[in-house]
Amino acid sequence: MKKSSRNVLLNTPYVIWSALFVIVPLGIVAYYAFTDADGTFTFNNIKNLGNYGSTIADSLIYSFVATIICLIIAYPFAYFLANFSENSQRTLMLLVMLPMWMNLLIRTYSWMNILEQNGLINNVLTRLGLEPVQFLGTAGAVIFGMIYNYLPYMIIPIYNVISKLDHSLLDAASDLGCNSFQRIIKVIIPLSKPGILSGIAMVFVPSVSTFYISQKLGSGKILLIGDTIERFMKTSYNYNMGAALSLILMALILISTFIMNKSARDDKELIV
């Protein structure tokens, strides 16, 4: 009795805090999403979301592609990294994390300078006698920005799992006649699934909701959900539509996490 009442006491500040600043705000988003500017109940905002179908689809496609490419780059990278000596591993991981400490806005802006019509890359291309390429303002540039900014979020969880793999399992696989390729496909990848899944979540969520990257690298020609929410909240003064879109974004992420968790659980059952 005494102990449990102590725990209640310890949890009280957080329960109050998270009720006020986590749960209630989500309720208020729902409230705004289902009311009009005068506060009367309406389904109009939700109906109007239909107009943003292509924006939502674009966001999903771009962030999906970015997540997949991140995975393709990050997985072998993390795997190679885990094979370096322990000291170099530590240093290299430090180098992976270091850019994340620099402001995302500055890094993205800096890429803008590199990818410009006569930026660094196009300068090299023209010197080589090639035609300059217009990078900015294309879907590719926006996806590129997502990959750049969120790649470390994919590398870190995958590396954490791979570096802690039980080496006796790998030896066992070799003993049982696996070649190194089979070892990767049959042992390492299945075992690193938790890292892959959390990496996917950590890249997909910020990508699908970004607005800064699309603003800068999309040159005002590409609109994503994040841009649209930003515009409703910050310039068109339409909180109701902004809230409705936020709600949809949240729902999309909940659904994808649910699907991912489910597939993770199915796998677990398979393994067991």
């Binding site: 988003v29 909701s209 607005f211 936020s246 949240m250």
Partner: peptide, 8 residues
């Protein structure tokens, strides 16, 4: 997403 937390 941060934007939802911010908006809420």
């Amino acid at each position: 997403p941060d934007i939802v937390t911010g908006v809420s």
